[in-house]
Design a protein around this nucleic acid. Sequence first.
DNA 1: AATGAATGAGACTTCATTCAT
DNA 2: CATGAATGAAGTCTCATTCAT
Lengths: 201, 201, 201, 201
Amino acid sequence: MRRRLQTEKLDQRREEILDASERIFARKGYHAAGIADIADELGLGHGTFYRYFKNKHDIALQVFDRVMMRFTAIGLEEDPTASNSIEEYRAQTIRILHRWLALAEERPHLLRFFHEQTVAVDMDRLAHVIEAYTLQTARFLQNGIDKAFLRADLDVRNTAEVLVALIFEGTRRALGMPDAEARRRWVAAGVNLMFDGIRPR
Amino acid sequence: MRRRLQTEKLDQRREEILDASERIFARKGYHAAGIADIADELGLGHGTFYRYFKNKHDIALQVFDRVMMRFTAIGLEEDPTASNSIEEYRAQTIRILHRWLALAEERPHLLRFFHEQTVAVDMDRLAHVIEAYTLQTARFLQNGIDKAFLRADLDVRNTAEVLVALIFEGTRRALGMPDAEARRRWVAAGVNLMFDGIRPR
Amino acid sequence: MRRRLQTEKLDQRREEILDASERIFARKGYHAAGIADIADELGLGHGTFYRYFKNKHDIALQVFDRVMMRFTAIGLEEDPTASNSIEEYRAQTIRILHRWLALAEERPHLLRFFHEQTVAVDMDRLAHVIEAYTLQTARFLQNGIDKAFLRADLDVRNTAEVLVALIFEGTRRALGMPDAEARRRWVAAGVNLMFDGIRPR
Amino acid sequence: MRRRLQTEKLDQRREEILDASERIFARKGYHAAGIADIADELGLGHGTFYRYFKNKHDIALQVFDRVMMRFTAIGLEEDPTASNSIEEYRAQTIRILHRWLALAEERPHLLRFFHEQTVAVDMDRLAHVIEAYTLQTARFLQNGIDKAFLRADLDVRNTAEVLVALIFEGTRRALGMPDAEARRRWVAAGVNLMFDGIRPR
DNA sequence: AATGAATGAGACTTCATTCAT
DNA sequence: CATGAATGAAGTCTCATTCAT
């Protein structure tokens, strides 16, 4: 029991360091961020790091993973078979995107990781996250085809990839936008394109 | 004439260094790349750089600009008012995308710059390129609306942004693909989404 | 208390580095002296410097200031109004000069700073020290005139400057002399000149 | 004869480079001055130097020697035995000092060499010049003693050294002064001190 | 004889990591 | 466990000097 408390305390400190690193990495980028910066952010000695993380790259990796997990959770917690009509799927899509936006608005620095930290961490790591997201998106599309509310001739795999690309790059842009209203219009334009394309009906 | 030859030779050396730097930066990223790496690539002394470029950042900037220019040229050399029907526009779009792919296939490392060098060079520089591309895309869309072969209710500005996001992120993915055939399928899926969306007609 | 001890230790190390730098700068001059030389002198890693001093120029400045302070202290700690007769002033002058000599003999490298480090550090810094010394000397002269043991027609300001020039340049020469006896004769010749000139009485 | 012309032309170029180097060294100091600066000053390629001078240090040495020679000439061209009275010697002294000032005023950069280039060139070289000057000054003093217009108990050698120190350091100061009038007053104060000291008669 | 492109030794500086306290 | 002083590898940049043209 004593041991358990000890461990919890350690885990808490570990978490604090991860939080601080997340902020610092987002603010300055991997290379410009120094271990000292993170230490200062917490008022710790920088030697203390090395009790919790092997080295700078190790911290970066874990920060990256944690950020990724937050975003992937949003997509993965939706049931790909829940929608039974195009309207439901459209609503579900918008719901997911708005959750992304909400997370990004709440923690504006998070999204920098998708794109700027790619060099620092394993390229493979990001590829893995993207693959998971693509598969999930494909499940949504397949569900629509099965239930005949999406075009039967859809190239599921590639279209899923296109959509994921759109989501990732889109959210990056979203952060540069001045206000929530602009972001919502952007999402609307994206969803319209996704569902109806640019050709007149 | 003597002077002219001299200058040409210098320009050639300058070009060689830019070429080598492009390769090295693409291979290792800005931070990991050392001046020495670039020097070795050419079999030159590293001091030679500083006869042609002020410092490391200066080289990075110029490499970045050169790469950008190649890609932007592709989009900007097409006439946004050339298409008079949806079929023509579709063909034009596919033509542009295939030119991007061709360039990317020919020089596989180029596209890394769009996304990984953003920290190294001015963020503004990339923003500027993207803005130019977005405006050009908007012209294409407006042309289609004017000639009634695109949906009249299109949010031109935001849709243009969405499409540019799609192109930039899409081409990045394209590089990770195994073969040209896969890339072509990806482009097809993208173009289909762009023109017709996922809803059945 | 713990903190206090820590700080003292740091200050001590800072002082050691200043001492070593003083020796090295005096031995080789600012430009020829490398950070590595100073590090070696102390058996430290050269990185250790940068924990105590911003950069090479910063060290030079502080060494220079410290050396200056030692010499200026000698002149400034005497009371310019203490002497009431020419004999007393002569004695006071000799006392000051012998203190300079003693300091120079004790630390033979110190005086090089007055003349050889001028380029490295701010020219203004030396000018400031000299001005302070000149003013102090002028006070001595004025005291003598007021008490009528010095010539009434003395150009106080300019004569003070001449004397300071003599002291500074003179002490530099003193260092090149073989023995203490030679130095004392030099000082005697200087003081004789100062008080009585070369014209017979 | 052809050979002679050739040689003259070379000597002329050599002289030009020495002139330019003198200006540049005086302006920036030995270390900060680059071979390129001197080359630019003349509109020459910097490789051309190495046809005339072995290396940077070699140029510095020769520039230094040339500058020294100009100043020493002033003192050495006067006859130490010419004066037969204290008034004549005083006039002679003032004449020499005013020639120094005139040279310094005409070429304001020259005097920097006495003091700031000491590190760059051999310390011995300057010592040699100073020794020559001291000997000459001693001859003047001895002449005065022999002819009984100077104090018989003068320590000739040391007083000569003191006077030379005064001249060298004094002229340095003179350069920092705002106008010719200020310089003249300084010289007057110096000469008064030299002849009569500060004690009232 | 003149040039200036190329060179590389050498100097400075940073910062991730270690380890004695 | 925490600390932060010490370290030195690694990287950038300068500039005197050489040498092919």
